[in-house]
């Protein structure tokens, strides 16, 4: 567990519950719109996120992932949870022809085992299931830009997700509207010094400022967003063959390009 946990207080009232937790090196915003949600529901999710961090962090030397990477832990002895996540990573590696690869890019712990590109989405998808099982029907969980949406924010509105403009933290490139349960994941490098390595070449990617993937499942959307970022504009053709998932890409020269299906999330797009 992380000793230096910073978080904003849980606010619960008639309009729902709201909480921001700093975990996994990022801010996780939990926004529940169902009335009278007990604070324990959020506490359970928060505890889950810290468990995921302790298990999968490549910044913790004795996390199971770090030990697996150094060969100190055998996959046969790893928990079902860890083995399950790595199986998913392997499946998506094959599916994306190596554009997503959790097994080759150098990780902070000195190994080349890093499932982070999938774990964030996977953990938030799980958190969303936990909230649903606790009776929540209308909520938004945002983990550093990877978002799981259910229901509606208010009775007569739909969840609206702003896609950040690459050149400005306070402006949007476009808005995605969720007409049902939806996952939105963005892979980007507009923060200083950040980069994403192409696992196929070992070199940093250069084409895109950001790649956003929308679809039903945040585990998949998160991994696909990483793969899309690596594939560049070619990724649009790849993902267009997946009817449930769509992508919106912003190039380094600030142009946006998207799959045909993406427009269904932008009924009010003004151009």
């Amino acid at each position: 567990m992380n000793g230096s946990v910073a978080s904003l207080p849980v606010e619960t009232d008639q309009s729902g519950a709201h909480h921001v937790e700093f975990v996994m090196g990022m801010a996780v915003s939990i926004d529940i719109r169902d009335a009278d949600i007990p604070a324990s529901v959020i506490a359970e999710v928060v505890s889950w996120l810290h468990h995921v961090d302790a298990t999968f962090s490549t910044y913790i030397d004795d996390s199971p992932i770090s030990r697996l990477g150094r060969g100190e832990l055998d996959i046969a002895d790893a928990s079902d949870e860890v083995a399950g996540v790595l199986r998913l990573c392997e499946q998506i590696r094959v599916e994306t022809d190596g554009a997503f690869d959790a097994f080759v890019v150098p990780a902070p712990n000195g190994t080349t085992l890093d499932p982070s590109g999938l774990v964030k989405g996977w953990s938030i998808e799980r958190a969303a299931t936990m909230l649903e099982q606790a009776g929540c029907a209308n909520f938004c969980i945002n983990a550093g830009g990877d978002i799981a949406l259910r229901g509606r924010p208010t009775e007569d509105t739909s969840w609206r997700v702003g896609i950040r403009h690459p050149e400005s933290t306070h402006e949007l490139a476009t808005v995605v509207t969720a007409f049902g349960p939806l996952a939105v994941a963005t892979s980007a490098t507009y923060e200083r010094g950040a980069h994403i390595i192409d696992p196929r070449t070992g070199q940093p990617t250069t084409d895109l400022a950001s790649a956003t993937v929308v679809g039903p499942d945040l585990t998949i959307a998160d991994a696909y967003a990483t793969a899309m970022f690596v594939m560049g504009l070619d990724g649009l053709d790849w993902i267009a063959a997946h009817p449930d998932y769509d992508a919106y890409m912003i190039t380094r020269d600030a142009r946006a390009t998207w799959t045909p299906g993406f427009d269904r999330y932008r009924p009010d797009a003004s151009r």
Binding site: D31, R164, V184, E191, T212
Partner: peptide
């Protein structure tokens, strides 16, 4: 009007 933002906010 939006409820949330997608885009990297990896660090605090």
């Amino acid at each position: 009007n939006v409820n949330t933002i997608s885009g990297a906010t990896y660090t605090s």
